[in-house]
Design a protein around this nucleic acid. Structure first.
Length: 397
DNA sequence: AACGACGGCAACCGCACGTAG
DNA sequence: ACTACGTGCGGTTGCCGTCGT
């Protein structure tokens, strides 16, 4: 595939941007929008490649960027989402308004990763590093299961994002071929679309819950507030079996409940080993089937917003943030916060400016010795809380 | 004061993906 | 179906300021 290098032209400047360059770029974009990035430098009178301009704009000049220290809440959000999504910074950035993925990535690499390591948690797997030591009391199993859960959740998010992306495409078709679809002045996607089942097998497979009573699947649910995410049917109810209809992912029979109920009762609800092993291939398949790991939560929220522009959908992101916020209030972040504070104390309050916010670091007291396991347990419990507390009646989750 | 080590961060690089022609 | 282009994304690099010796 031919792909012309963008910066191989001689005479193009690289390296740090000067205020003059910034000014030029800013002025041009404010007046004309960025349009084609490749064409922009010439038009704006910059000796830069388009890519460089784009990066400068998205990571630095954009007016809606918040700079400066990350708040404790932001830190916690990053860690939690990283546990679920891995190094998908753009997805994580979705839930940190005004922060760029690059900034988050840098912050993770320079601060949070180290902090987790210091806490004895593997920043990659988010598992306790002393897994082996814990194995005797079964904690390693728990940790593995929790990690497994996170992996699965990651795949789930991927699938959901794909669904939305698919819907986005449909939305474009709406705009381009309005005659071919029921007109939707309110863009509320209130129509059924036979094409859905063809293009999105996981939809056609039926989100049992969401498609019940509306044959068109998810898109039929009407987005006036009762949009049912396919995966939102993953209710995490300990009583009612979850209606996992991700047939496209081969997950329909997965014993999700067994995973799910565990978040709040760390000791009891952990995945049953037999269930886990039984469905391991399905998990694997589910994850592997989520081919497009480029999708992210931003895709979900943004594409829905652009696709249907329903106010109710705007709550999706807000909800996620609320969930995260709730989790934080419940103490997960105390762990890190306390660590943060420990660090502050030990390092002379280097990070004490940390948004002074939510001084909820009170009861934490992590970090030392015997508390380590407890902390890690809480850590994972709260990650699961994040997932579990996504209400089934949420438009998005 | 000079020097090296280290950390933080902006920017670059290259791959992947979507899309238009 | 193929190709070129535009863009998104994550990993990496390199500059610069700060700190310790």
């Amino acid at each position: 595939m031919g792909r012309s290098p963008c910066c191989d032209k001689v005479g193009l400047k690289k390296g740090p941007w000067t205020p003059e360059e910034d000014q030029k770029l800013l002025a041009y974009i404010e007046e004309h929008g960025h349009g084609s990035w490749r064409a922009l430098p010439a038009k704006a009178g910059l000796q830069r490649c388009g890519k460089s301009c784009r990066l400068r704009w998205t990571n630095y000049l954009r007016p809606d960027i918040k700079r400066g220290k990350f708040s404790v809440q932001e830190e916690q959000t990053i860690i939690q989402l990283h546990a679920l999504l891995g190094n998908r910074w753009s997805a994580i950035a979705t839930h940190l308004p005004k922060r760029t993925d690059n900034e988050i990535k840098n912050y993770w690499n320079t601060h949070l990763k180290k902090r987790l390591t210091k806490m004895g948690i593997d920043p990659v797997t988010h598992k306790p590093k002393n897994d082996a030591l814990l194995s005797s009391d079964g904690q390693s199993k728990n940790a593995a299961n929790l990690s497994h859960m996170a992996q699965w959740e990651s795949a789930r998010l991927e699938a959901e994002a794909r669904l939305v992306r698919e819907s986005k495409l449909r939305s474009r078709s709406f705009q381009q071929h309005p005659a071919g679809f029921a007109p939707s002045a309110s863009a509320s996607a209130s129509t059924s679309d036979p094409g859905v089942s063809k293009s999105a097998p996981w939809i056609s497979g039926g989100w049992t819950k969401s498609s019940e009573g509306n044959s068109g699947g998810i898109l039929n649910t009407g987005f006036s507030g009762d949009l049912e995410s396919p995966t939102s049917t993953l209710t995490f109810s300990e009583n009612a079996p979850p209606v996992m209809c991700s047939t496209g992912l081969g997950l329909s029979s997965m014993p999700i409940t067994e995973f799910v109920g565990t978040s709040s009762t760390s000791e009891t609800g952990i995945i049953k080993e037999e269930g886990d092993s039984t469905h391991l291939p399905e998990y694997k398949e589910a994850i592997e089937n989520s081919l497009s790991f480029t999708t992210n939560l931003q895709d979900m929220s943004m594409s829905i917003e652009t696709a249907w522009t329903s106010e109710s959908l705007r709550a999706n992101n807000a909800h996620v943030n609320n969930v995260i916020g709730n989790v934080m209030e419940e103490g997960f972040t105390n762990l890190l916060l306390s660590d943060s504070m420990d660090q502050s104390l030990s390092e002379g309050g280097k990070e004490s400016e940390n948004s002074g916010g939510s001084g909820d670091g009170g009861e934490g007291g992590s970090g030392s010795g015997s508390d380590c396991y407890e902390d890690n347990k809480n850590y994972w419990n709260n990650i699961l809380n994040l997932v579990n507390s996504s209400p089934s009646d949420s438009p998005m989750f």
